[in-house]
Simulated scan of single mutants.
Amino acid sequence: MVEVLLVIGLVVAAFVGFNIGGSSTGVAFGPAVGSDIVSKLTAAALMTGFAFLGAWTAGRNVIETMGGQIVPEDQFTLGASVAVLFFVGLALLISNTFGVPASTSMTAVGAIAGLGVATGTLDAAVMLEIISWWIVAPVIAFWICAVVGRYIYPYLDAKLKLDQSPGALLTVDRSGAIPRPAFGPNTTIREFGSIVLVVVIACYMAFSAGASNAANAVAPLVGNGAVGIDAAILLASATIGLGAFTIARRTLDTVGNDLTELPILAALIVETVSASLIAMLSWLGIPASLAVSATMCIVGLGWGRATRTVTIGQALGGKSPGMSVNALTTETDENVPRVGEESETDLAGRNLFDPGTTGRVIFFWLLTPSLSAAASYALFAVTSL
């Protein structure tokens, strides 16, 4: 019976990892795919490799937190572990079916918390610390990007000019005996360097996603000693990769095309800030949501950019900024208007984010952890596994 439960546990863990790959790939590489910098296939390959690197390093700390600090390790019997992982996978499957990048960390912690509340073993101090960071991290992400959008972004945009030129980025020069890559007809060194930087930072996000999310698939099995941590990380990484190559295509479309149309510079800022926050929390052992932080970065950056139409004094005096969602694709020259002198016309461009899609994403962020926590509590309140 124990062997059967272990096999079931491994299958369910693989199912969870598969759904994590589907969700996190969209968050990490959505801006790069949406900007036509990398293909979905390339994004999946990079996601697989860097998620494994993140899980193998900082991810160990998160596995320890979720595998024995929220509730004691002895609560993770094989039956309980299978049930917790099943609820996580079911909630994530629902969100991936609708093409929404769910918060896998919040969903997994919700399921474990449901077990702890039902059995009276929840460590309230650890849970309070995790929830506190869930609140603080998106706020930090929003305000960092809001400050960048208001005071720094237009100057970076004017100096760097990271717009993509028409035509292929690279071509193959076949004039010699050996074909070799060459810049496209309109590609500049600056453009090529900026695009490489976008891909590098997307890989950094994938690292952060692996560090934070691998625990969501395997922490219960590691907590009860059924699987060693190294083997668990390999299992999580492999199944995250499988999800990246398959169901991630829908979340890549949602983040890269429906939720936002990010220019290169904006993608760089969003990815850097959100990945740094999650990497820091992972080293601290805090399971946190890359999806939430990344989206709050997008909204904060656009909001900060839009508020350049008024000064702080005017805002305090009751004048509202023109809250356009078209704030990040402005073509500026070297003479950037000062804060309060920029008009709403200056901020015209493609939409920063679609309010309807944003609302749908937030709804599923709230729904998936609520479902996993409620289902877990209901099961463990009436039965002992």
Rank of each mutant, 00 (worst) to 15 (best):
254 T>Q: 09
228 G>F: 03
267 A>C: 07
219 A>Q: 03
269 I>G: 11
236 A>T: 06
235 L>W: 11
247 I>F: 01
215 A>V: 03
266 A>R: 05
213 N>W: 08
212 S>C: 04
205 M>L: 13
262 L>D: 12
212 S>W: 08
270 V>K: 10
217 A>N: 04
214 A>G: 10
260 T>V: 11
261 E>I: 10
210 G>K: 09
258 D>L: 13
243 G>L: 00
262 L>N: 13
253 D>R: 10
258 D>C: 00
259 L>F: 11
270 V>H: 09
267 A>F: 07
227 V>K: 03
245 F>E: 01
219 A>W: 06
216 N>E: 08
267 A>K: 07
270 V>F: 09
265 L>G: 12
244 A>E: 01
253 D>W: 01
245 F>I: 07
242 L>C: 07
270 V>A: 15
259 L>K: 08
222 V>Q: 06
205 M>A: 15
257 N>W: 11
261 E>L: 11
204 Y>I: 12
221 L>S: 08
203 C>R: 12
215 A>Y: 07
269 I>S: 11
258 D>V: 12
266 A>Q: 09
231 A>Q: 13
260 T>I: 04
253 D>Q: 10
239 T>L: 13
223 G>L: 02
238 A>T: 13
241 G>K: 00
210 G>A: 07
249 R>H: 01
264 I>D: 07
271 E>R: 03
237 S>F: 08
251 T>I: 02
264 I>S: 09
228 G>Y: 05
203 C>H: 10
226 A>Y: 13
228 G>R: 09
205 M>W: 01
269 I>F: 12
268 L>T: 07
247 I>G: 02
204 Y>V: 14
203 C>S: 14
227 V>D: 06
268 L>V: 09
211 A>K: 05
223 G>I: 00
238 A>M: 12
232 A>R: 09
263 P>N: 14
254 T>F: 07
235 L>N: 11
253 D>V: 09
216 N>H: 02
243 G>S: 04
